[in-house]
């Protein structure tokens, strides 16, 4: 087999470049202004940057472009650019969103796009916040506690439909947008008394698991402050994974807490049957 001559290669590259240029020319270009929060440690203000936007661009692309061309010191957190790592959470036009999943053509073209950091967490710099509080909360939730194995070989038998119920909660990518929008944390700063929607989903995944036998209801009521949730459903609205946080996780947990702590009839039934946690 002979290698292609340099003339053939050059023609191929030219054809490729020409095709690329034709493709680029076919893509719509427009100028967009971004109003980006700049500052550190809670202090700062919005600064306007105008940049070239192309069809299909997302907010994260535009910010990278601004970072490359105008503001090399702009701090922002990102990783996968595919809506799966949960790193690029921010507030775009006032709504908590993933920057990598927010297309520019979804946003009004006639006004600047505002981008600011999440307000629930301590501000570090520009669009970066310190979300480490979340990682300190998680270990305080009673761990998965499986029942004794069903078979002598140490395995369990579980109905797929029972697993499906908690599978929804496992889609969480820990972007913490639900924590950001929750007014109990965002406006009332109850970080010491309330674990927030993300960890109520986590607790629901454990509490409703068909193998789990631990009872977290007292913990949810007392230490985790589930009573602070007033069911605004904002967490459900911002979840990029579409988890029905309020209806499928928080309200069922509230009902379980009501069973244990606020329902005299249930208490009577438990007393008669002598059963702690229903299967």
């Amino acid at each position: 087999m002979t290698a292609p001559s340099s003339t053939t290669t050059s023609h191929a590259v030219d054809a490729y470049t020409a095709a690329q240029q034709a493709q680029d020319a076919a893509v719509g270009h427009s100028s967009r202004t971004f109003r980006v929060w700049r500052g550190a440690n809670g202090e700062g203000d919005f600064r306007d940057y105008t940049t070239e936007a192309m069809d299909g661009m997302v907010v994260l692309d535009a910010l990278h472009q601004i970072q490359a061309e105008q503001a090399p010191d702009l701090a922002l957190r990102w990783n996968c650019k595919a809506g799966k790592c949960g790193s690029c959470s921010a507030e775009i036009n006032g709504k908590p969103k993933l920057m990598c999943m927010t297309r520019l053509d979804e946003l009004p073209a006639d006004e600047p796009v505002s981008v600011e950091p999440m307000r629930t967490f301590p501000h570090v710099r520009d669009l970066v916040t310190d979300v480490s509080w979340n990682f300190r909360v998680k270990p305080n939730i009673t761990r998965f506690t499986p029942r004794a194995p069903d078979a002598p070989d140490g395995t369990w038998r579980v109905d797929q439909r029972d697993v499906d119920r908690v599978q929804e909660f496992r889609k969480c990518i820990e972007c913490f947008l639900c924590q950001d929008v929750c007014h109990v944390l965002r406006d009332h700063h109850k970080h010491d008394e309330f674990i927030g929607p993300r960890f109520l989903v986590y607790a629901a995944a454990l509490e409703m698991h068909p193998l789990d036998v631990a009872d977290r209801t007292t913990q949810l009521k007392e230490a985790h402050g589930i009573g602070y949730c007033n069911i605004t459903k904002c967490c459900t609205k911002v979840c990029p994974e579409g988890i029905t946080i309020t209806d499928n996780a928080i309200i069922p947990l509230k009902e379980r807490v009501a069973d244990q702590h606020f329902d005299p009839l249930r208490a009577l039934v438990r007393l008669v049957r002598g059963k702690k946690k229903p299967g």
């Binding site: 006032g94 950001d180 007014h183 109990v184 406006d187 009573g227 007033n230 605004t232």
Partner: peptide, 22 residues
């Protein structure tokens, strides 16, 4: 409480549904 999602609230204090009356 809140007026809408990610909109500022009129009060700083908040009890939620933990205590009486809610």
């Amino acid at each position: 409480d809140p007026p809408s999602c990610s909109v500022g609230e009129p009060r700083k204090g908040y009890l939620g549904e933990r205590t009486l009356p809610l």
